[in-house]
């Protein structure tokens, strides 16, 4: 029986191995290596193509291939990242017939071009469609998001190191917590049982840690900016993005700051025209 050990992974450039949520993942950035690896995997008995998905990672496009070996039900995931300006991936539909339409779908919705595919046409959308709707630069309505920017290509080595570090820290924290819990359990009185078992099942162990992180308390409470004539709920949200939540901040805006704010938020000198600063000052005085 062939196993992973029999697959030669040495000469494949840019290959990284990792395990995510119990799934074995081979991560690649080199299209040729992807094709070579697929051929080797097929030879190693990965005969059942489960799924092929295209994902827009915001720095590039990713092809995710899920394979299964029916003889021992081993599962495997392949990632291949390609940049936006060269979204070309070698097709593997000649190796596994089952990914034929998946590749067409990934081309149709995500915009990855599968070189060597016999019949790479749009499959779900109309043939004259011009956009690839699952790309993140388009919103749900299919419109281009105006200020969309691609992210820089990630530094995978740094990320791997960070992950290792985080895993080490988490393990340490878990150890500490376990020790603390032991000590606490020794002290604490045994809690009553049989109350509301059905209504309040225990939270899972993993989730407890993330839930217990306390939120930082807001330094000062926000004012109701809608009291100012000319500001509605929409502008409140926009101002909040710029860090303005209180009358005081609005009242103390300098002319330059106000102009910058107007430019940024597309206000078109409403601040001066509707006298937001004066209103805010009055409200601020009335409050205090």
């Amino acid at each position: 029986m062939s196993t992973e050990a029999a697959i030669n992974l040495e000469d494949l450039p840019t290959l990284r191995q990792q395990t995510i949520c119990g799934e074995k993942v081979y991560q690649l950035e080199d299209p040729t290596a992807y094709r070579q690896l697929c051929e080797r995997l097929l030879a190693a008995g990965y005969d059942f193509p489960q799924c092929l998905s295209g994902v827009d990672m915001e720095y590039g496009l990713r092809t995710v291939l899920h394979l299964r070996r029916l003889s021992d039900q081993a599962e495997l995931t392949l990632w291949l990242d390609v940049p936006y300006d060269r979204p070309h991936v070698p097709s593997v539909s000649d190796l596994w017939g089952g990914v034929d339409w998946h590749e067409r779908e990934a081309y149709d919705l995500v915009g990855i071009h599968y070189d060597g595919h016999e019949d790479l046409r749009r499959i779900l959308l109309e043939d004259h469609w011009t956009i690839h709707p699952l790309q993140r630069r388009y919103d749900t309505g299919g419109y281009l998001i105006p200020d969309w920017q691609a992210k820089p290509w990630p530094d995978w080595d740094a990320i791997a190191k960070e992950k290792e570090e985080a895993a080490r820290k988490a393990a340490e924290a878990a150890e500490k917590r376990a020790a603390a819990a032991k000590a606490k359990a020794a002290k604490a009185v045994k809690p009553k049982e049989g109350e509301g078992g059905a209504k309040k099942p225990p939270l899972s162990e993993v989730k407890k840690t993330s839930d217990q992180v306390a939120k930082p308390k807001a330094a000062q409470t926000a004012d109701d900016l809608t009291k100012i004539k000319g500001i509605g709920a929409h502008y409140v949200a926009l101002l909040k993005e710029q860090g303005i939540t209180r009358f005081e901040q609005l009242a103390n805006l300098s002319d330059d700051e106000a102009k910058r704010l107007e430019e940024k938020m597309n206000f078109k000198d409403r601040i001066a025209r509707e006298q937001w600063r004066e209103q805010a000052r009055a409200l601020q005085e009335g409050k205090s």
Partner: peptide
């Protein structure tokens, strides 16, 4: 015939996690 039918908990999934389930 009795017991909880739902484990209540928050769904918080870390960035970069991925899963294929069938």
């Amino acid at each position: 015939r009795s017991g909880p039918y739902l484990a209540r908990g928050r769904v918080k999934i870390e960035a970069g996690e991925q899963r294929y389930r069938a």
